[in-house]
Design a protein around this nucleic acid. Structure first.
Lengths: 367, 367
DNA sequence: TCCACTTAAGCAACGGTGTTGCCAAAGTGC
DNA sequence: GCACTTTGGCAACACCGTTGCTTAAGTGGA
C-alpha cells in the first residue's frame, strides 16, 4: 500500500494475498506449508488457511504432497500454480529484439529473438515488436496473458511510458511507446529502462539481498538500484544514471559534455586494450561502485553487460579489490559481495516480464 | 505497513489513523475538513468521520470552526491538538549539547543548550544529558512525553542504538547509547546520526519535496537522504556517507585513507582561504551534489552546517551553477532547486524530536 | 495391536473494519 | 418562507482476521 493512501478491507486482503503469493513464488518447486506461511507473514494459521483457500479457488495455488512428520500430522505443502497465467517480456535493444513468455514463477516458457534497427522509425519497430509478440503467443496457444513488459535503452518516463532522448536515436524523443504498444497489442503494457528491468528481475529471482546495485557495462554504463527490496526509480524515473557520475574533477571530456564521467573513463580504459586496460576499467568501475555502496549502504553489487561478460572474472575481481580496500580504510566492516549477474544477455527481457508479474506479488505498485 | 509483513485489522486501523493524523499535522493551524481528508486519503467520508471521532476521543484532534459555505452546510474544520503529547530532542555534538521539547506538530515548546565535552567519557556525558532533559521537563511540568530522540555525529546502528567509530572519539566505539539512555531517563529512546535526524526534520516540516538530499558541511561533510518521502537509512544505517565519495581519482589523500574524497577536497578549498577558496569548495560540493542528483533523481538539494551557514548565498549559488550546467548537458530538463536548509544549527535537535513523532504519522517504522 | 500424545488444519462464532443507504443538520438564494 | 445544496451522523451490512474448539493424521511406547 502506498504511503499516502488510505487502506480499506479489499486493500488489506490484496496485500495479504500478494504477500502469501510472493512466499509461494519464492519457495518454488519445494513449496511451503501453511504454518511456515503464518510464521513468515505474522498472520495467524487460520488466516493463512483462509487466504490459501481463496488462492486455490482462483487456481493460483495447489496442494502438493506433505512434509515428513515431526511427531504429529505432517504439514501439507502448497505450491504456486505457475502456469495459471503468463507475462510477455520485450527488450528493444539497439540492434536486437528479444521476447520471452514467462509463467507466474518467472520461468521462461518460450523465447524469440530477431534483428532490429532501432533507428528505422517507430512504425517499423512497432510492427516488428507486434509481430514477434504475436508469434510468441501463437506458438503457445490459449494462455492467460497478463500484459507485456517492455525494456528499452534510453531515459524515459515510467509512469506514462513516454521515451525521452534515447542515446543516438533522437527520433524517439517524446514518443508515447506505452500508448502505442497498448493499442497495437491489445494488452496492458509497462515500459521501463533496460537496466531497471534487469535489476527488478534480479531482485525477484536473485540471491535475496534486500538492497543492491546492478551495474551494466556495454555500449554505455548504467545502473539499476534495488533499495529495501523494491526497484528505486526516483522522482522522474531517472534514477540509476550511473555512467555520468563525475569521478575525476576536470578529467577528460565525455560525450555528454561533462568532464571525468565514469563511463568515459571506463570505456576509454577498455578501448586502450590489453589486460592493463581492463584492469584500469575495473578499477574505475570499482571506485564508482564503492561510492555507491558507501552512499546507499547496499548489500551487494551485481555486474552485467557485454563488456563485463567478456571478461567476467577480471571485472568481478577488480571491483572486489577496490571495495575491499575502501571498506578496510573506512572501517565499515567487511566488504560486500560482488558478483556477475546471472542470466547474461537475457536479464533485461526476463526482467521486463517481471515488471508485469511483480505487482501480483506486492513487489511494486501497479501503474 | 512493512513490505514483508501481514496486515490485520488493527494494522489497518493504525495505518489509516496515522494517515489522517499526518494530514492534520500538515494542515497546521489552518485545519482541514472531513471531506478534504476523504479526498486526500481515498477513504469514504463516513470512514473519515469514524476515524476522526476516534482521534477526538483520544484527545488528539478537535473541531475548530467552519469553512465558508459553498451553498450548503459549511465544512467543519478539524485541527491536530498539538499539545496532547510531546517529544524530547537531544543533540550530542562534539562541543555542545542541545535539547528541545517539541509538541505533536513539531513546534519547539522549550529549548536548552549547554557546553559539552564529548571526549569526557560516557558517564559524564550521560549525566549531563540526563540533567538537561530533566531540567527541560521540569520547567514544563506534567506533559505527556512520548520519548527522546537522540542525534549524534558518528556512524552507528540505528536499530539497536549502538555507536560505531565516532570520528575523533574512539572511546565511544561500541557504546550502547540507546540502552544506557533508556535506563537513565526511563523513557523510550531512539538514536540516529545527526544528518539523518536533520533530514527527517526537513522531510516533515519542509517544502513538500518527496525526495531530497540534505548536505551538511561543518567540521566534516555528511548527508541525509529522504527518498519517496521516507528517511533512507540503508541496510546497516550507513547510508549518507557522502563525505568520502571519491570524486577525483588518485587525488590528494584524505584522513580516511582514500584519495580524492569530496570532504578532503572541499575542506582544503575552504582552508585555502578567500573567495576563491569558497567558490572552489562550492564547485566541488556541487559536483558531488550533481552526482547524487543524477544517480537518485531527487527533487531538491538542501545545504546546511556551520561552513555553509557562514557563506550561505555563495554556497547555494555555487552548487546551483554546477547543477544547472550538468542538467543542461545531460538534458534531463530543468535543474532542481538548491536551498539553504532552514533552522540553521537547530535542525538536528528538532529532527531528533521528530524521530519520536514520525511513527505516529506513519512516516517511519517504529523501532 | 492398541492407545496416549503431538501436530496440522478446518468449522463456527466473534469483534471490528470500512461501506452503503438513509436521514437530520445547517447553511444559501430566490 | 421555501426549495435546494452540502455536510455529517446513524444503523445495517459485508467481510476481514481472530479465537475457541473439533477433527484429521501422523508418531511412539506398552
Amino acid at each position: 500500500m502506498a504511503a499516502t493512501v488510505g487502506a480499506n478491507l479489499s486493500a488489506l486482503r490484496g496485500h495479504n494475498a500478494a504477500l502469501v503469493l510472493d512466499l509461494l513464488r519464492t519457495a518454488g518447486e519445494a513449496g511451503i506449508s501453511r504454518l511456515e506461511l503464518a510464521e513468515r507473514t505474522g498472520l495467524t494459521p487460520q488466516a493463512v488457511s483462509k487466504i490459501t483457500a481463496r488462492l486455490r479457488g482462483e487456481g493460483l495455488a495447489v496442494e502438493a504432497g506433505r512434509r515428513a512428520s515431526t511427531g504429529g500430522k505432517p504439514r501439507t505443502v502448497l505450491r504456486l500454480l505457475a502456469g495459471a497465467a503468463h507475462a510477455v517480456g520485450l527488450h528493444l535493444d539497439r540492434d536486437e529484439l528479444h521476447t520471452v513468455l514467462a509463467d507466474l514463477s518467472g520461468a521462461v516458457v518460450a523465447a524469440r529473438r530477431a534483428p532490429l534497427d532501432l533507428g528505422a522509425g517507430s512504425d517499423a519497430v512497432l510492427a516488428a515488436a507486434a509481430c514477434e509478440v504475436d508469434a510468441l503467443l501463437d506458438a503457445d496457444g490459449g494462455q492467460r496473458v497478463l500484459g507485456v513488459g517492455v525494456a528499452v535503452p534510453g531515459p524515459l518516463d515510467h509512469t506514462d511510458g513516454v521515451l525521452h532522448r534515447v542515446t543516438g536515436f533522437p527520433q524517439w524523443d517524446g514518443f508515447p511507446l506505452r500508448e502505442a504498444l497498448t493499442e497495437r497489442l491489445g494488452l496492458p503494457v509497462v515500459v521501463d529502462k533496460d537496466t531497471n528491468a534487469a535489476a527488478l528481475g534480479l531482485a525477484l529471482e536473485g540471491g535475496g539481498e534486500r538492497s543492491f546495485a546492478y551495474l551494466h557495462l556495454g555500449t554505455g554504463l548504467g545502473a539499476g538500484l534495488v533499495l529495501d527490496g523494491a526497484l528505486y526509480r526516483g522522482a522522474r524515473t531517472g534514477a540509476g544514471e550511473f555512467g555520468h557520475q563525475v569521478i575525476q574533477l576536470d578529467g577528460p571530456r565525455c560525450s555528454c559534455g561533462n568532464r571525468g564521467c565514469i563511463e568515459a573513463l571506463c570505456l576509454a580504459a577498455v578501448a586502450s586494450g590489453g589486460d592493463r586496460g581492463l584492469d584500469e576499467a575495473a578499477r574505475v568501475l570499482g571506485e564508482g561502485a564503492a561510492n555507491l555502496v558507501s552512499l546507499l549502504d547496499i548489500d551487494a553489487v551485481l555486474l552485467g553487460g557485454r563488456t563485463v561478460a567478456a571478461h567476467e572474472k577480471r571485472f568481478v575481481r577488480g571491483v572486489e579489490q577496490v571495495l575491499a580496500a575502501r571498506a578496510g580504510r573506512e572501517g565499515g566492516g567487511p566488504a560486500i559481495p560482488v558478483r556477475a549477474a546471472p542470466g547474461g544477455e537475457t536479464q533485461a527481457v526476463e526482467g521486463a516480464a517481471h515488471m508485469i508479474l511483480a505487482p501480483l506479488f506486492g513487489r511494486e505498485a501497479p501503474s
